[in-house]
Design a protein around this nucleic acid. Structure first.
Lengths: 255, 255
DNA sequence: TCGATAGACTGGTAGGACCAGTCACGGCGC
DNA sequence: GCGCCGTGACTGGTCCTACCAGTCTATCGA
C-alpha cells in the first residue's frame, strides 16, 4: 500500500545522472568523461562518491577506465549486458520507450515456451506440486493484483523447474524491468490473468513431463498476453507525443 | 598473440573475492557481511576499496546494504541478472561448471533462430549486405580463429538487424561469458565453422525477408554447433573429477 | 631531426574525521 | 514489576587530504 521511500545516496545519484546521459546519447560513445576531480567539483560531491559511481558504470560496461589516462564512454548497445534494460525502458521524462518495451515482451514471448518445455522435462513432481498450489491460490484470489502476483510466481516456479541458470538470470533481468510498471501490467493483463485453465493445463503438462504439450500450452497463453501488451504499446505510441503520460517509475513492492 | 596483462585494482580484487564466496555459497544468502571497517582491516586494504567493491555487489544485486544496519547476502539465483553468468561459469579451481555451460548453450540455441527470423523481417538489404561481406571474408579465411571471429561477427550483425535491444543485451551477456573460453570454443566448433553454406544461405534468407526460412536455417546450424558443445561438455564432465583440466580463465582479445 | 626527460595531468590507494542511521541495553518513571 | 525512552556503541555514508602510480605532452638538448 505504502511505497518504500527511496533514499538514494549521493553516489547513486551520480551514477544515475551519468547513466542517463549515456543512455540518452548526451554522452556519446568514444567521448571522454571529465576527470574525477573536475566531476566531483562540478557536482558538488566528494571524489569518493564519483569514484563509486564510475566503478558501477565500469561494471555495467558503460565506460572504460584507464589508469593515468581518461575515462571514455563505451557503446552500451555493444558492450552492456541485460542488466541495463531497466535503465532503458524509460526516457528522462518518464515516458516508456515503446521499442524497448516491445523488445522485452518479444524476448519473454520467445523464452517462455522453452522454459515451460524444459520445466516439463526437468521439473519433476515437486515442480508440478508447487504449480498446482499456486493455481489453487489463483482460483480463490479476487484482487487482480493478487492474481498477477500469483501468475508471476507461477512463472518463477517454472523457471526454477527448468533447471537452467541462464534462463533464471535472464528472467530476473526481465523482472527487474517489469517492476516499475507492475501496476500498469496488472491492467494490461487483466483478461489474460483470468485464464486459469491455461495455468492448470500447463501444470498438468509439467506433471506428465510432456515437453511439447507444455510448450504449446505456454505459447498459447504467452502469445495472448503478449498481444495485449503490444496493443497497449501501439496505443501508447500514438498518444505519446500529445500526453505526458503515466507517472514516472518508482520502485515499489517490499521484499 | 600476446595476452593483455590484467592489472586488477585492489577494489576489483575485493569484489572478486566477495563475489566468489557468494557464488560458491561459502557466504550463504541471508548471512551478514563483516562491517566495512572490519573487512578493510581483514583484507589489509582501505575502507574506500571495500566500499567500491560492495557498491558493485549491490549493483549486481548480490548483497543488500542498509544504512546504519548490516550488509546481507542475497540469493543471487533469485535476484541477480544475466551479467552474473561469467562469474558462474568457473569454480574457484578454474573448472568449467558444466550445468552452467549447458544452460548458456541452451539459451543461445533457443534465441538464435528467433534472432535470425526477426533479422529477416527487420534487417533489410543493409543487413544482408553486411552478412554477405562477412561470408565473403570467411571464404578466404584460413585460420580457425579468424573463421570463428567472423562467424561471431555474423551473429552480431544478425542481432543488430533484429532491431531488438533485449536480444542485443542478452547476446552481450552471453558473449562476455564466452570470451574466457574463446580458444576452447574454436576447437569445439571447428567442423561447424566450415559450414559456410549455412551462413550463405542464412544471408540469402535475410535478404529475401524470409522469416521462416531464416529461422529454419539458423536452427539447423545452431543445433549442430550446440550438439558439438554438448558432447564436449559430456566428456569434460566425465573427466572432471580426475583431471585438473584446462587453464583457468583469463580475459584475452584486445579491443 | 630525433630522443630523452621533466612536469602536469590522469586515475588508484590510504587513512582520518565526521555525519547519519540502527539497535540493544540499562535506567528512569509509572 | 512493567514499559517506555534515552544513550551509547555500533553500522554505513560522506568528505577531505595526502600521496602513489600510471600517461601524455611539451620542451630542451644531443
Amino acid at each position: 500500500m505504502f511505497q518504500a521511500i527511496s533514499k538514494r545516496s549521493v553516489s547513486d545519484e551520480v551514477f544515475e545522472q551519468l547513466c542517463n546521459r549515456i543512455v540518452s546519447r548526451e554522452l556519446k560513445a568514444g567521448e571522454e568523461l571529465p576527470s574525477e576531480r573536475l566531476l566531483s567539483e562540478m557536482l558538488g560531491v566528494s571524489r569518493n562518491a564519483v569514484r563509486e559511481a564510475i566503478k558501477r558504470l565500469q561494471q555495467a560496461r558503460m565506460v572504460e577506465v584507464k589508469h593515468g589516462g581518461t575515462t571514455t564512454v563505451l557503446d552500451y548497445r555493444i558492450e552492456a549486458g541485460a542488466d541495463l534494460l531497466p535503465s532503458l525502458l524509460f526516457d528522462r521524462q518518464g515516458r516508456i520507450q515503446v521499442d524497448v518495451a516491445r523488445s522485452i515482451v518479444r524476448m519473454r514471448q520467445v523464452l517462455s515456451p522453452e522454459i515451460a518445455g524444459d520445466a516439463a522435462v526437468h521439473g519433476g513432481p515437486s515442480t508440478a506440486d508447487r504449480l498446482d498450489a499456486i493455481v489453487d491460490a489463483m482460483v480463490v484470489a479476487v484482487a487482480p493484483a493478487e492474481l498477477q502476483r500469483l501468475a508471476f510466481e507461477f512463472w518463477e516456479v517454472l523457471v526454477d523447474g527448468s533447471g537452467n541458470i541462464a534462463y533464471r538470470l535472464a528472467f530476473n533481468s526481465l523482472r527487474k524491468t517489469y517492476e516499475p510498471i507492475w501496476d500498469l501490467l496488472t491492467k494490461m493483463l487483466g483478461r489474460d490473468l483470468q485464464k486459469l485453465g491455461a495455468f492448470r493445463k500447463l501444470a498438468v503438462m509439467v506433471r506428465q513431463g510432456d515437453r511439447g504439450g507444455a510448450m504449446e500450452c505456454a505459447r498459447e497463453y504467452i502469445d495472448g498476453s503478449s498481444n495485449a501488451i503490444y496493443q497497449f504499446l501501439d496505443l501508447y505510441e500514438q498518444h505519446a507525443q500529445t500526453a505526458p503520460k503515466d507517472g514516472p517509475p518508482e520502485s515499489r513492492r517490499a521484499p
